[in-house]
Amino acid sequence: MRGFFKKLKIGLEKTRSRLVGQLTETVTGRPQFDEELFEEIEEVLIASDCGVETAGLLAGRLREECSRRKTMQAAEVLEILKEQMVLVLAGDAPATTAHQPHVILFVGVNGTGKTTSIGKIGAQLKAQGKQVLFAAADTFRAAAREQLQIWAGRSGADIVTGADGSDPAAVAFDAVSAAITRGRDVVLIDTAGRLHTRHNLMEELKKISRAVGKAMPGAPHETLLVLDATTGQNGVAQAETFGAAVGLTGLVLTKLDGTAKGGIVLGIRHRFGVPVKWVGVGEKPDDLETFDPAEFVAALFQ
């Protein structure tokens, strides 16, 4: 976990320096907090993709807390904001793999990094001695199967595939059945990226989820929405629609090593209560780690 903390810190370097830099600049040099200061803090939060509503909410809570504690010191104001952000994100159980096999379905819009995340998670579970099986249920995008096969080859995971254009639900069903027969520990199901506004594709996704439940009652045990950290307010709509279709148990936040701030997770957590489970902070297999809200915020405010 310490390694992750360090990596996340490096990954978030740009994020942190920008966010905290701006906040510190905003807050310091002002002995008195005033209305303008809160508006500026709100603006900084909006610039991190927190969303107008969440930014307003955080700024409002901050305002209340500051007046309750009768503080106006820059350092304290920042500390309170930090607390408020942890409060929004806190209280998540870490990711578990309790079932045999434990089935995880990965969903999301196009290009967020579903296949890559599965490759990374698979490699890590494999390194922990788990028997992993990939289901290449993205039968739509050209070479999606090949991409997952390469990841499977690297980590030595099993893979169940179907022909291009074949029924993804059938691939998912076969994969889970195969995992049961072969006694595998974890099944990671890759699905084709789809815009949440495509009614038919969302119906297809529901079918995949149902098929998985038929192969193993109670499965999928987790349904993770893979979200690109550069995503703006549309992330809220994605979480809402995917959640309504297949019920989300968590988020995978990818590409956090850029300058994107991923503030949208605060908005999603606040609106739908869906927690972040994993964060991607680089290109290497171990650059994807389980998410700890306290560390996330701490790293953000280091």
Binding site: G235, A260, K261
Partner: peptide, 10 residues
């Protein structure tokens, strides 16, 4: 990507 947020500018 049309879904990019504030980071698009950067």
């Amino acid at each position: 990507d049309a879904m990019t947020g504030q980071d698009a500018v950067k």
